[in-house]
């Protein structure tokens, strides 16, 4: 049982890394002492800390962790290590929702709630369509992916259609938000988002054994006592819900859900029970760190965090692929 000890070691290291990234995100440029002092005092940095850095770190934590867990879940069900949280067409649906709300001008009515609300609504719409289509196929993973790709394409075309009607200035804002953005979420969302994110995630944590078995394919999974259609349905729904929440909170942040499970699988092995937790911590760490880069690399100019995860993640993935052969 050497793998178990290794898991404990790796998890401990991951938690330490996560804590370091959180401290970095909160105390960057100020030091930990100042941070704690300012937290309890109403000075200038205290304001920044409480109103900007803490909420932002919380969202990066929730989104990063959820993307990691979604990635693991979908990779197992689809039996494809390259699957990621947006595989089922969620990104297309969310973009459509937001483009629609921009063109109709819902921001004027819903204010800060417009993007999160319509992003989530669009994502859930695409999931609902994929589900309706998959029902006849008993939620067969391969047909679900196919439906997801098609639905995503159709929605993307609608997005381009809407963009061709939009004023370029408005279009720019929408595009930038879609590229991944942790900066603009309203603090008012946080009390709502914490349970909304944590409940589906903690349910997913309990399906490690089933994910192990589902990765052997539908037939073998059934022989081992799992009822695949039921789990496909439930797990897809949970992970889509999470991915939809992620999009609604921060736009489309690529690579986290792909690369974090990939790297951790190489380190701690394929067992999903541990991998789920490790990917949650790893995803949160990776996104918080990427966000620190996006905030301070070219300070005061901010980079879109999706660009940072893409570049950082892309290089790590390439490195791993080259090293393997």
């Amino acid at each position: 049982m050497r793998r178990k000890q290794k898991s404990v070691v790796v998890l401990t290291i991951l938690v330490c890394l996560l804590l370091v990234s959180i401290l970095l995100s909160l105390a960057y440029g100020k030091g930990i002492g100042v941070m704690f002092h300012s937290f309890f005092n109403n000075d200038g940095f205290g304001l920044i800390l409480r109103k900007i850095r803490i909420p932002r770190t919380i969202i990066a934590f929730l989104v990063g962790g959820s993307l990691g867990v979604c990635g693991v879940t979908l990779q197992s069900i689809l039996r494809n290590p390259l699957a990621e949280p947006y595989t089922l067409g969620i990104a297309g649906g969310a973009s459509f929702g937001i483009a629609l709300s921009t063109i109709i001008g819902f921001q004027r009515i819903f204010g800060a709630f417009a993007n999160p609300l319509f992003g989530f609504g669009g994502a859930m719409l695409s999931v609902a369509i994929v589900f309706a289509l998959s029902k006849k196929r008993f939620f067969d993973p391969n047909s679900m992916v196919l439906f997801g790709v098609v639905v995503s394409l159709v929605f993307s075309s609608f997005v381009f259609f809407l963009f061709s009607l939009l004023d370029p200035d408005k279009m720019q804002t929408t595009l930038m938000w879609l590229m991944g953005d942790l900066s603009s979420l309203d603090i008012a969302f946080i009390p709502m988002y914490i349970p909304a994110f944590l409940i589906p995630t903690s349910i997913l944590f309990f399906f490690g054994k089933e994910l192990d078995i589902l990765s052997l394919g539908r037939e073998k999974a059934q022989y081992l006592g799992v009822n695949p259609p039921r789990f496909y349905k439930g797990l897809f729904l949970l992970s889509s819900l999470l991915a939809g929440l992620c999009v609604s909170a921060s736009g489309i942040i690529g690579f986290v859900g792909l690369i974090v499970p990939h790297i951790l699988r190489n380190i701690i092995g394929a067992g999903h029970t541990v991998l789920l937790i490790a990917s949650y911590i790893g995803g949160a760490f990776f996104l918080i760190l990427s966000d620190v880069f996006s905030r301070y690399l070219l300070y005061p100019v901010e980079l879109p965090v999706g660009v940072v995860t893409g570049i950082l993640g892309g290089f790590i993935l390439l490195f791993l692929l080259i090293r393997r052969k």
Binding site: G44, I48, I52, R53, D167, D169, Y299
Partner: peptide, 23 residues
Amino acid sequence: RINTEEVILKNPNVIVLMDMGYN
């Protein structure tokens, strides 16, 4: 695209908003 922290540190007297694209 700018980090909100910078705005807070620079403490503006005036914020110019444009009636377009955002609320």
